[in-house]
């Protein structure tokens, strides 16, 4: 105990923690205010609004699962090569050869869990009417985050490069062929012609944009990999920052205003 006391008196400790232990009112406030992560919360909240039966903690769990998926995802990236030659073998190796062979499992099951927790979070927010003014725009941001979660999961689906991945993505991306005016088989696309030349064809339609090719192939794998690991998480992080900030500004976690 005495040793800890001396540690706390060092310049290093004091430079990191600028307040005392959170045991009194002042320091408990400071613990939240002076911490970049915790200050997304207000200092004080209504006692009833932190009860688990009202919030279900689903928003928090979704964010936590996002962090888990980021960490496990980074670890998986150390062993995975997004090419047609190596991808499948690397996934097998991740199970058979790599230490802590359950990393892919945590990533996959965590992703399933995140989709469910996002839905339940939306469900709770709806049932408590928490999208009403002034929180309307934050609901919109939430819907965008929900879509990004599904896109993250969908792009990740291709990466194992097994039969399930390839054909689920083939079938899924085939919908894009039917985009009105922008897919080769979409309604109205046949009207977009210059003389005999089709303006929208299999080599430049919406599905081509998605797959970077006419079929699910090497370019698709790389494209989905980049989307999955960098592009979508990047956008989602920005939207999450907006989402959390606005929760704070609009009166904190759930509760009547």
């Amino acid at each position: 105990m005495k040793k800890l006391f001396t540690v706390k008196n060092t310049q290093i400790w004091k430079s990191i923690f600028r307040h005392g232990p959170p045991e009194d009112r002042r320091n408990r406030s400071l613990a939240v205010l002076a911490n970049v992560f915790l200050h997304l919360h207000p200092v004080k909240v209504r006692s009833s609004s932190i009860r688990l039966r009202y919030t279900w903690c689903m928003g928090g769990l979704t964010f936590f699962l996002f962090l888990v998926l980021t960490v496990t995802g980074i670890l998986l990236m150390f062993y995975y090569r997004p090419t047609v030659e190596y991808a499948y073998g690397d996934i097998i190796d991740l199970r058979e050869q790599v230490p802590l062979g359950a990393m892919r499992e945590i990533h996959r099951w965590g992703a399933h869990a995140m989709v469910i927790s996002v839905w339940l979070h939306m469900f709770r927010v709806f049932m408590t009417g928490s999208y009403k003014p002034p929180r309307e725009f934050n609901w919109v941001v939430g819907v965008l985050l929900l879509v990004l979660t599904l896109l993250l999961s969908f792009t990740g689906y291709l990466l194992p490069w097994d039969q399930l991945a390839m054909w689920a993505v083939t079938v899924g991306s085939n919908m894009a062929r039917a985009t009105p005016l922008m897919g080769t088989e979409g309604p109205g696309t046949a009207l977009l012609v210059l003389g005999d030349v089709k303006l929208v064809h299999a080599g430049n339609d919406a599905r081509f944009f998605l797959l970077a090719g006419r079929f699910v192939g090497a370019a698709t794998l790389l494209r989905f990999y980049v989307l999955h690991c960098i592009a979508i998480p990047f956008v989602a992080s920005i939207l999450m920052a907006v989402h959390f900030w606005r929760i704070r500004k609009d009166g904190g976690i759930s509760g009547p205003l």
Binding site: P22, R25, R28, S29, A31, V32, L38, H41, P42, V43, K44, V45, R46, S47, S48, S49, I50, Y54, T128, I253, S254, G255, P256
Partner: peptide, 16 residues
Amino acid sequence: LEKQETLPKTFVWPDL
């Protein structure tokens, strides 16, 4: 349930 004014506000640290 969510607005019983008899309940005081509580500190985020440590409760939440």
